[in-house]
Design a protein around this nucleic acid. Structure first.
Length: 209
DNA sequence: CGTGAGATTTCCT
DNA sequence: GGAAATCTCACGT
């Protein structure tokens, strides 16, 4: 397999343009045992330091969110609700504090490993399969992303994102974000229309084109 | 199928 | 001390 991660400069483009371009891209991880996991990104949310009270970076840098303020193209992994990890792509220039949350993936390679990571054993239960990566904490569990992966460089060869399917504008949906109490009305969630791996319907859905 | 509560820990006020 | 960018299970329809 060819390994061509998206470049550092790719992660510095306009935040919302970048979010739509990540849709259809391939999220890849090589595990320590050499197994390869990959999945298309089908749902993301934008979090901007400036004027976005729901962003972890909104109130400035802390030990928890310091990766968000670092160089773009790194993975910001946070722990929440006492048991879950979620991961973001850091964007923009150093010090900016912007990131894009990866909310759902469509498995391509290594779904057997993802099922084992999620449920402790291989399964052919269709309910479990459809729930393997359709949420931000679920996909982290499926890809074994936790504390150790916080701050990892996506321009290296452990975890990266590479070009995948080009998604035409008229297949991109936009809505408000999920699970937040501030910035509720900002339409900063983007997803692939009619894709069954998208986590939830969302509110205020509009389509491009 | 929809709703609701519990799990469980870190971080910041 | 309380909220948190969530998930799962139980229970009612």
């Amino acid at each position: 397999m060819i390994h061509v991660p998206l470049s550092r400069s790719f992660y510095k483009q306009n935040l919302h343009t970048l979010a739509t371009r990540l849709l259809g891209s391939l999220f890849v991880r090589i595990l320590d045992n050499g197994r390869r996991l990959s999945a298309h990104i089908v749902e993301v949310e934008v979090y901007a330091q400036k004027d976005d009270p729901s962003a972890h970076s909104y109130n400035g840098q802390t030990p928890r969110n310091e990766v968000m303020f670092g160089a773009s193209g790194h993975l910001y992994v946070y722990f929440t609700y006492g048991m879950h990890f979620c991961c973001n792509v850091v964007t923009g220039e150093i010090g900016k504090g912007d990131a894009i949350l990866i909310r759902a993936l469509e498995p391509v390679e290594g779904i057997e490993d993802m099922l084992i990571h999620r449920y402790g054993a291989m399964t052919s239960d269709s309910q479990k399969i459809s729930n393997v990566t359709n949420g931000p904490a679920k996909l982290c569990q499926a890809f074994r992303i936790g504390r150790l992966e916080n701050g990892i460089d996506l321009c290296q060869n452990k975890i990266w994102i590479e070009a995948g399917n080009e998604i035409p504008e008229n297949m991109i949906g936009q809505s408000t974000r999920i699970g937040i109490n501030q910035g509720k009305d900002l339409p900063w969630r983007y997803f692939i229309k009619d894709n069954s791996w998208v986590s939830k319907p969302g509110k205020g859905i509009k389509y491009f084109g």
